[in-house]
Amino acid sequence: MADLDLRHLRYLIAVAETGSITRAAQRLMLTQPALSRALRALERMVGTPLLVRGSHATTLTAAGSELLMDAYDLVERSRVALARARGTETLTVTAPACDVLDVAAASRAFEEKHPDIQVHIEPRDWLAPEVLRAGATDVSILRDSFDRHGLDVEPLAAEPRMVILNAGHPLGGRDRLTLADLRDETFTYWPGMSDAEAAHWTGADVDGHPRRQSLRIGSVTDVLAAVALGRAVVYAHGSTLSERLPGMRALPVEDLSPSRLEIGTPARHAGPAGKLFVEHMLEWAARPA
Rank of each mutant, 00 (worst) to 15 (best):
V15K: 00
A204D: 01
D99E: 10
D5E: 14
V15C: 00
I164P: 03
A105K: 04
H8L: 10
S140M: 00
S194L: 11
H269G: 06
R7K: 15
A270I: 05
A81D: 10
G264D: 02
D102H: 04
H114D: 12
S65I: 08
E185F: 08
A97H: 07
G274K: 02
Y189W: 07
M193N: 12
D181C: 04
A41C: 09
T88Q: 09
V220E: 12
H169S: 06
V119H: 01
S36P: 12
P155W: 00
V278T: 13
L82C: 08
D3S: 09
R108E: 07
P155F: 00
L251G: 04
M281D: 07
D125I: 11
A38R: 11
P160I: 14
R183N: 13
L30F: 04
Q26N: 08
I121P: 03
M281K: 02
R44M: 09
R260C: 11
T90S: 11
L28K: 01
S242E: 09
E66L: 13
A134D: 14
H120P: 05
Y72S: 04
R108M: 13
A16I: 07
V227E: 01
H169D: 14
D222Q: 05
G192T: 10
V220L: 06
R268W: 12
S55L: 12
G19M: 05
F110T: 09
S20P: 10
V52H: 06
P258A: 15
I164V: 12
L67F: 09
E112Q: 07
A158L: 03
L51N: 05
V233R: 00
L12I: 06
L6D: 03
M29L: 13
G87D: 08
S242N: 02
E243L: 09
R27A: 12
S107F: 03
A198K: 08
L50K: 01
L171W: 10
T178A: 04
A236S: 13
R124Y: 09
Y72V: 12
S36L: 13
F187R: 01
V234N: 07
A81Y: 04
Y189G: 09
F146Q: 01
I141K: 04
E197K: 03
P210S: 11
E89V: 10
S219E: 13
D205P: 04
S78W: 00
A57E: 15
T58V: 12
P272K: 00
R44S: 13
A204K: 01
A38Y: 05
R174L: 14
A236I: 06
S36R: 13
E130L: 13
L6W: 00
A204R: 01
T188A: 10
D102Y: 05
H269Y: 03
E66M: 07
A273Q: 10
V234C: 10
R216L: 12
S194I: 10
M193Y: 15
R212E: 14
A38L: 08
L28E: 03
G271N: 12
A14L: 04
A158S: 07
W126R: 06
R176F: 11
D147G: 05
L224V: 12
A85N: 14
I263E: 11
L74I: 06
S65E: 15
